[in-house]
């Protein structure tokens, strides 16, 4: 009897430690924040090119994460990429209607995220509203293409001389 009690305590500790480990994996490793569920509101923005943006990408303001991308789909009318974002309620009625949303890259090869900058308008974006000023993803390819075509033009003019 004494021995089974010891066994039970050992197994109980084992199970509890494993569940604590699961909580650790949830909170510290995957960064699940328990309070991130309720207090958000939704804003959409249309981009000409969403680049490598994915659902669950970060939405930041001044570099601070204030929300996440919920959904990305194609706007059937203008054929733009429509990005739906959940933004923390602390920013509710503080984003002016001329705010800018830009798709930025962290580092040279890092993940892409949405950066918000507020404007000067006194009218604020409501829940479900749209950010009109957007800046599409700056692809490395298009940068190189611009650079190369610029060079190409110069070469042509030189060879014509």
């Amino acid at each position: 009897m004494k021995r089974t009690r010891g066994l039970e305590v050992g197994v109980g500790l084992f199970v509890v430690v494993a569940f604590l480990g699961l909580v650790f994996l949830g909170l510290k490793v995957s960064g699940l924040v328990p309070t991130s569920g309720g207090s958000t509101y939704t804003v959409t923005a249309d981009f000409g090119d969403i680049g490598g943006l994915k659902p669950n990408s970060r939405v930041t303001m001044s570099g601070v994460t204030v929300g996440r991308v919920v959904n990305i789909d194609l706007d059937p009318k203008w054929l733009d990429g429509r990005v739906t974002m959940e933004i923390s309620d602390t920013l509710k009625d503080k984003l002016s209607s001329d705010s800018t949303a830009a798709i930025l890259t962290s580092g040279l090869l890092g993940e892409q995220y949405v950066g918000l900058t507020t404007g000067a308008d006194t009218e604020m974006i409501k829940d479900g509203g749209t950010i009109r000023n957007t800046q599409q993803a700056m692809g490395l390819e298009s940068l190189i293409q611009q650079f190369v075509s610029g060079m190409g033009g110069q070469d042509d003019s030189e060879s014509g001389q």
């Binding site: 699961l22 994996l25 949830g26 510290k28 490793v29 995957s30 960064g31 970060r58 993940e111």
Partner: peptide, 11 residues
């Protein structure tokens, strides 16, 4: 780690 690990997907 936190920005790349998704609980539902990876864990």
């Amino acid at each position: 780690m936190q920005s790349s690990v998704q609980f539902g997907h990876d864990v």
